[in-house]
């Protein structure tokens, strides 16, 4: 392939876009959080997020969320291609507003849990998880 001026320009644009990707992904998290909270102020008391500090395998990272009295808990992985992970909605027969599951993380990043309380307020907890091998099959 001949390297023309046009090709060079396109490559430059491509790498610039690639360089901005993480920033865009981060903005996506902010947007999704805003979509869940409706832009309301988010507190930090009354929610626990248990995640490992270091996860060797990003394909299955055990996490646990607990927010006593919450209506729903949403979990985000800030650095994943699609940040939302799961939404837990608790019914009348849930003994505690907590749940444990296993998630995929593309790389070292923050895991964020936000709970919606019955009075319409929101609380948030986040923890950084260091991932040795990413879980996106890339």
């Amino acid at each position: 392939m001949k390297l023309t001026r046009r090709h060079t320009l396109m490559m430059a644009v491509g790498s610039a876009v690639a360089a901005f990707m993480p920033v865009r992904a981060f903005a996506a998290v902010e947007e999704e959080i805003a979509a869940f909270t409706g832009g309301a102020e988010v507190g930090s008391d009354g929610i626990t997020l248990i995640a490992p500090e270091i996860a060797e395998n990003g394909n299955t990272v055990p996490i646990e969320v607990d927010a006593p009295g919450a209506e729903a808990i949403i979990v985000f992985a800030a650095g994943n291609p699609t940040p939302s992970v799961a939404t837990f909605t608790f019914g009348a027969l849930a003994a505690s507003q907590s749940a444990a599951t296993r998630i995929r993380l593309a790389g070292t990043q923050d895991v964020i849990a936000i709970a919606r309380m019955p009075d319409g307020s929101f609380v948030q907890a986040s923890q950084e998880v260091k991932v040795t091998i990413g879980g996106c099959g890339g």
């Binding site: 799961a86 837990f88 009348a92 027969l93 907590s98 749940a99 599951t101």
Partner: peptide, 30 residues
């Protein structure tokens, strides 16, 4: 998960949930 028709938990899963989805939660048995 429901008990005699009453909801215990309702989870929305996204692609970031691992292979072989696992859930652990608490329920009241009336």
């Amino acid at each position: 998960c429901t008990f005699n028709g009453e909801t215990v938990i309702d989870v929305t899963l996204e692609p970031a949930i691992s292979t072989n989805p696992y859930f652990e939660f608490q329920a009241i048995v009336p």
